[in-house]
């Protein structure tokens, strides 16, 4: 049994009496402790898929099983990081993290929650900013807090919807490496199952065990690709290897041939 089983998922939207299909018969599975990226150009339904995993949306047809159980709405087994608005602006960084902990860990008292919050804010390098409000933090720092909260909640599954999509290039690199480090850990704990939505190929190669490439109109799974690089990974070493570059080119070719299929032309790479 896989950790997450996505089975024949179809989502139809109706907007102004016109219906369109966001996802059509999407099926794949994710193993426990696996880092899976869902990649595709905008409109391929990757965010819709994640919103169903989050429990915010319901599919028209098909279902998602977690540990063999079909999901019904949101659940305490999944932590979520959005691209924007994950944090509550009226809570300080510390309170935001502690609030998340409170929702999943009913036993911990207030001071224990704050202690865990401090520990995770320290891990993402924000110890000195813990008493700041989100409006006083940069976009990158806000995402660090959101990651700290999701990790502090210590859920089995982590869902990330383009978490670095709105961050400038330099900070995005730093955040990718931070996430990689935190997720890979030191081997003392089991790794979390991560579903990571992105449109950045380099990001998906660096982070994932498996890449699910999706195609648009309607949203379908185009290819599932296993990423063959050993962990722990190091970006600067990895990008210099020929294996990496061959793999990356292969992926790019796939990505664009899908687009070429759509417009009916051969794309030269």
């Amino acid at each position: 049994m896989s950790k997450i089983d996505i089975k024949h998922l179809t989502v139809d939207y109706t907007e102004k009496k016109k219906s369109f299909t966001a996802l059509k018969d999407v099926s794949f599975s994710i193993e426990a402790g696996e880092f899976v990226s869902i990649i595709g150009s905008s409109g391929c339904g990757k965010s819709t898929l994640l919103s169903i995993l989050e429990g915010i949306n319901t599919p028209t047809d098909g279902q998602i099983l977690i540990d063999g159980e079909p999901i019904k709405g949101t659940g305490a087994d999944r932590g979520v990081v959005f691209q924007h608005y994950s944090l509550f602006p009226w809570m300080t960084a510390r309170k935001n993290v502690a609030f998340g902990i409170k929702q999943v860990n009913k036993e911990a008292n207030r001071s224990e929650r704050l202690k865990i919050a401090d520990e995770f804010l320290d891990k993402v390098g924000l110890a000195q900013f813990k008493n700041k409000y989100p409006s006083q933090l940069s976009g990158g720092m806000q995402q660090r807090v959101a990651i700290a909260r999701a990790l502090a909640m210590d859920t089995d599954i982590l869902l990330m919807d383009e978490p670095f999509g709105a961050i400038d290039a330099k900070n995005r690199t730093i955040l990718q490496e931070l996430l990689l480090k935190l997720w890979e850990g030191d081997g003392s704990k089991e790794r979390k199952t991560v579903v990571f939505v992105t449109h950045d190929i380099d990001e998906s190669i660096l982070l994932s065990d498996k890449i699910v490439m999706m195609t648009t109109n309607p949203g379908r799974v185009y290819r599932e690709i296993t990423v063959p690089f050993d962990r722990p990974r190091n970006r600067s070493e990895l990008v210099q290897t020929t294996e990496y570059n061959t793999f990356r080119n292969k992926l790019l070719a796939m990505f664009y041939s899908d687009i070429a299929d759509k417009i009916g032309e051969e794309v030269m790479l």
């Binding site: 989050e54 915010i56 305490a76 979520v80 509550f88």
Partner: peptide, 27 residues
């Protein structure tokens, strides 16, 4: 209140009371 704020609270699996008084009240 923006839908995204409500969604952020929903995915934390908050109960009804928390949703009303810890999220919607300050928002």
């Amino acid at each position: 209140i923006e839908k995204k704020t409500i969604d952020s609270a929903k995915v934390l699996n908050v109960n009804r009371f928390t949703m009303l008084f810890s999220i919607m009240l300050p928002a």
